[in-house]
Every structure is written in C-alpha cells, then in structure tokens.
Amino acid sequence: MNYEEFLETINTHKSPPAGLSVHSKSLWLDKKGDWQAAHDLIDQLDDPTSAHVHAYLHRVEGDLWNARYWYNRAKQPVFEGSLQEEWTALVKLYLA
C-alpha cells in the first residue's frame, strides 16, 4: 500500500485495513481521531519504531516531556515541524 492509498482508507474504512503494521495501524487510528486506541497499540512495545510513533503520540497529546523521553528511546531527534508534517513523515517512513 502506498501513501495515497493509505490516506484513502482513512476516508473509506471504519477500521484499519488488513496487512498494516502495528505502527501504521496506530497512525491510522490517530488520524481517525482515536488517540487512545492508537496509543494502546504502541504503549507496551519496546522496539525503536514503536518508540518513535509513541513519541509522536505524546506530542499530539501535548505531553512534551514524555514525547522527548520516547524520542530518546527511539534514538530520534525531537521533530520540529507541525504535527501534520510529522504524521505524514512517519506514515511514509513506516509504510515502506
């Protein structure tokens, strides 16, 4: 699935499409407005990719201290752009 197809599913599906990684599912749920479900998918995972998405989700929540903690766990710099720019970058990165 490419980025454009992923975006289309947000408008046409009630739940994440089959075959997405947990990271892409989390980002999909976030875009649908279900932050809690997005966070619940990632919260207990300990890999760097999950930590990266987790950092973004805490940035969305406005908990910048916690977001910085997760960026550090992911070995990623704190994202300096808008939330939309970060969401787009993460989707493109983790769909690949």
Rank of each mutant, 00 (worst) to 15 (best):
S24Q: 12
L95I: 03
T12M: 10
V91N: 00
H58Y: 11
H52S: 09
A74D: 04
T88A: 13
A89Q: 13
H52V: 07
D34E: 08
V22A: 12
D43Y: 07
G62E: 04
E86G: 03
L90H: 07
H52F: 02
D47E: 07
N2P: 01
G81V: 00
E8K: 14
L7G: 04
P17F: 03
Q84T: 09
L83Y: 01
H13M: 12
S50Q: 00
Y56R: 04
E85N: 10
L95P: 00
D46I: 03
K32S: 14
L64N: 08
E5I: 09
W35H: 15
W65F: 12
D40Q: 10
N72F: 07
A89H: 12
R59C: 10
H39W: 07
A67C: 12
E85R: 03
R68D: 14
K31Y: 13
T88S: 11
E8M: 11
T88V: 11
K14W: 05
P17A: 15
E80A: 12
P16E: 01
N72G: 11
R59D: 08
D34I: 06
A89R: 12
V78Y: 05
S26Y: 10
G33T: 06
A67M: 09
Q44A: 13
R59A: 12
K31F: 08
V22I: 15
D63Y: 00
W65Y: 14
L20R: 05
T12N: 12
L29F: 14
Q44G: 08
I10N: 09
T12D: 13
Y94H: 15
G62F: 05
L93S: 09
L90N: 02
L45G: 00
Y71Q: 03
P17E: 11
Q84C: 01
K25P: 04
F6T: 10
S26Q: 06
W87R: 13
L64M: 13
G19I: 06
S82M: 09
D47L: 04
A37W: 06
L27W: 02
V22P: 05
K32W: 04
V60M: 11
A96P: 08
F79W: 15
V22W: 05
L41R: 05
D43E: 14
W70K: 06
A67W: 04
E4G: 08
N2S: 01
Q36D: 14
Q76K: 15
H23T: 11
N2F: 00
K25W: 02
N2G: 01
L20Y: 14
P16Q: 03
D46T: 12
T9G: 06
K92L: 07
N11L: 11
G33M: 06
L20D: 00
Y69I: 10
L83R: 03
E86K: 08
E80Y: 04
P48V: 10
E61C: 01
T88K: 12
E80V: 07
E61Y: 13
R68M: 12
S50M: 00
W70I: 08
S24W: 01
H13T: 06
L90Q: 05
L27F: 05
